[in-house]
């Protein structure tokens, strides 16, 4: 029996998104028509996935383990200094600013305050920002428009845009020339529905899909398979509503788990394995909280990506 390598090719191409302020560093994601790491198939994955380190708009809650923020321990009270410090680690591609303090279950801080912190962070770093509200749809409907106004024209990614607030948040994102991270709870139909609704007034090529990313052990298999399906629908079936790049935002979820908190090496692997799985499933952006877990995955990824781009 003769072996003929089962090489495949797809015709759907994932949208390209370029994030970052004018004059600053930019990252470009998307543009692929192969499945992740499938450099042996016909087609390409021209823009390597990017790694974003998460910072907070307040000092970290006390219940988080101290090892998590060790390299930043002197700047944790000041998000702008924190962001500046991130630049010292050249394997970080972008910063995710998580506006935790705006959460009504946290400090419930005001939209104006969030906008103020955001602009300071944006001025402090040349790295692209991914700015996330608390996820409370009502609060985000107030916080995110204020934030969008503050970073007008900076080509940042803003989220999470949810079905409860997509109109008001989406319009603010569009008005200020930014990108939308559209979040739905781990369901292919819900995410397509949100993209359709957004699409009535919002350009599809400015959307990034956030299918929600739980941690290893807490439901990662749902997102793993969902991301594989999204990528396949976009590339093979050419479904326009799934042709956006994807963000795997697990930074917060990982460190909720007891297993990540109780031991540093276990925590690093908990985050790194979650990251690598979702990278393998097709994520274009990955958010980490632990610098070492990011370094571990990024270095492996980068050394291999170079080999395949040769």
């Amino acid at each position: 029996m003769e072996y003929k390598a089962p090489i495949e090719s797809n015709t759907g191409i994932v949208n390209v998104v370029t994030l970052g302020k004018p004059g600053g560093e930019t990252v470009r994601i998307g543009g692929e028509n192969t499945l992740p790491f499938h450099f042996f198939d016909d087609g390409s994955w021209p823009n390597p996935s990017v790694f974003a380190l998460q910072i907070l708009d307040r000092e970290p809650p006390e219940d988080l383990p101290a090892f998590l923020y060790e390299p930043f321990k002197d700047v944790l009270h000041d998000p702008a200094k924190w962001a500046k410090k991130v630049e010292e680690f050249d394997y970080v591609d972008a910063i995710q600013l998580y506006l935790l303090s705006t959460d009504p279950a946290d400090r419930g801080s005001a939209p104006e305050k969030a906008a103020e912190v955001t602009i300071k962070v944006a001025e402090a770093t040349s790295l692209p920002l991914i700015i996330y509200g608390s996820g409370d749809p009502d609060k985000d409907a107030k916080v995110l428009p204020a934030v969008c106004e503050a970073v007008d024209g900076m080509n940042y990614l803003i989220g999470p845009v949810q079905k409860e607030n997509y109109e008001v948040v989406g319009k603010a994102i569009l008005a200020h020339g930014l990108f939308a991270s559209a979040q739905t709870p781990m369901d292919i139909n819900l995410l397509k529905e949100l993209n359709v609704k957004l699409g009535h007034f919002f350009p599809l090529e400015r959307i990034v899909i956030d299918p929600l990313s739980p941690a290893l052990g807490y439901g990662i298999e749902y997102t793993y398979s969902l991301m594989e399906r999204i990528k396949q629908l976009g590339e093979i079936i050419k479904d326009k509503m799934t042709q956006m790049p994807m963000i795997a935002d697990f930074a917060t979820e990982i460190w909720r788990s007891k297993q990540a908190r109780e031991n540093e090496e276990q925590g690093i692997l908990w985050e790194a394995m979650t990251s690598l799985s979702l990278l393998t499933a097709g994520a274009n952006i990955l958010t980490h909280r632990h610098l070492k877990s990011m370094k571990l995955v990024k270095e492996m990824y980068e050394s291999e990506v170079k080999q395949w781009q040769k």
Partner: peptide, 17 residues
């Protein structure tokens, strides 16, 4: 500390969807 995440991942990926 290295094996727990690996074994959990194996369980997760082989869970019948």
């Amino acid at each position: 500390n290295h094996m727990l995440p690996l074994l959990v991942q194996r369980l997760n990926i082989y869970t019948d969807p």
